[in-house]
Simulated assay, not measured.
Amino acid sequence: MPELPEVEIVRLSLSKNIIGKKINKVLIRNRNLRFKLKFSFEKHLKNKFVINIYRFSKYLIIELNDKSFCIIHLGMSGTIHILKKNKKNIYTNTSFYHSPGLPKKHNHVEISFNDLTLVYNDPRRFGFFQIVKNKENLTNRFKNYGPEPFDKNFNLDYMANYFKDKKKDIKSFLLDQKFVSGIGNIYANEILYLSRINPKIPVKKLKKTQFKLLIKNSKKVLLNAIKKGGSTIRDFKNTLGDTGNFQKEFKVYGRQKLNCLRSNCTGVITKIVQSNRSTFLCKLCQK
């Protein structure tokens, strides 16, 4: 599943290509996504101008000129492709995960502008589109989500108060969107390794110094991933011909049975399962 950095890369790709442009046509080939697309969807988007594109957590938010918004969630396997007119379109993917070119199957939604068409591809169909009619409704849509790691409200006081008397382990909290928005399994592993914190430790046992490390390293890991183009596990190019390289910098994710990369550690990376998710850690330096 694309996590915050990957969705941010999609936002940047879309921002460079469709802001200020008019939507000429919307074609739905399959309405049966996670939430069935309403028959009013095409009519609402047609002839609207894209004013801006935002991201919250793992959601893309397209602002339209009538002050409404189109929310897009990519689910487990969703990708957005840009097909430019009069181009070969070898690399169409707006991000760095799944196919770099447009697949032949599972192209469910097409949004056309004068010079290009956006195609939403999703084999598993866990993604969705949702129209939100105004900013108040948009705020309410995300009211139960925690702050993003970049938010000033994701601070020491917030973390200390949230964790008070809680028994759950720290990794589960990092994946809980009610606590912090946008962190997924890959980056939770990397954040905990960088912070030298055992993923299984109950949050009530964490110290204030460890809170500070979690806040600092959440920002550090995600910003670095965005800078490197997200994590694909595989290498290939996006619409700009760039490659996503953050997976080459994984310190712990996917490195089971390999030596710990800390210069002063002789540990070996172990893989365990927490809540049906793969967790990677060095038991020597993550206490």
Score class of each variant (00 low, 15 high):
Gly184Asp: 01
Phe179Glu: 01
Lys283Pro: 00
Gly230Phe: 08
Lys220Gln: 15
Ile9Glu: 05
Thr243Asp: 11
Tyr91Arg: 03
Gln274Pro: 01
Leu27Phe: 09
Tyr59Lys: 04
Pro2Trp: 04
Asp151Val: 02
Lys133Ala: 08
Asp165Trp: 00
Gly78Lys: 07
Phe250Asn: 15
Phe126His: 12
Met1His: 09
Ile233Lys: 12
Gly254His: 05
Lys204Met: 11
Phe142Met: 09
Lys283Ser: 01
Thr79Ser: 15
Asn32Ser: 13
Phe154Glu: 02
Leu240Gln: 15
Leu60Ala: 11
Asn114Gln: 15
Asn185His: 02
Thr270Tyr: 02
Asn276Thr: 01
Lys22Trp: 07
Leu83Tyr: 11
Leu258Arg: 09
Asn140Thr: 05
Ser218Arg: 10
Ile90Phe: 12
Leu240Phe: 15
Gly229Met: 13
Ser278Gln: 00
Glu110Arg: 09
Ile28Cys: 04
Ile186Pro: 03
Lys287Glu: 00
Asn17Val: 14
Ile71Pro: 08
Gly20Leu: 12
Asp165Leu: 00
Phe163Asp: 01
Leu156Ile: 05
Asn276Pro: 00
Gly146Ile: 04
Leu37Gly: 03
Asp66Val: 07
Ser275Val: 00
Leu45Ala: 11
Lys257His: 06
Leu261Thr: 10
Leu281Tyr: 03
Met159Ile: 06
Phe154Ile: 01
Leu214Lys: 08
Tyr59Asp: 06
Asn140Leu: 12
Tyr187Phe: 03
Lys143Gln: 06
Glu148Ser: 06
Asn24Ala: 11
Cys70Val: 14
Cys265Asp: 06
Asp122Cys: 09
Phe173His: 01
Thr279Val: 02
Lys200Glu: 13
Lys207Leu: 13
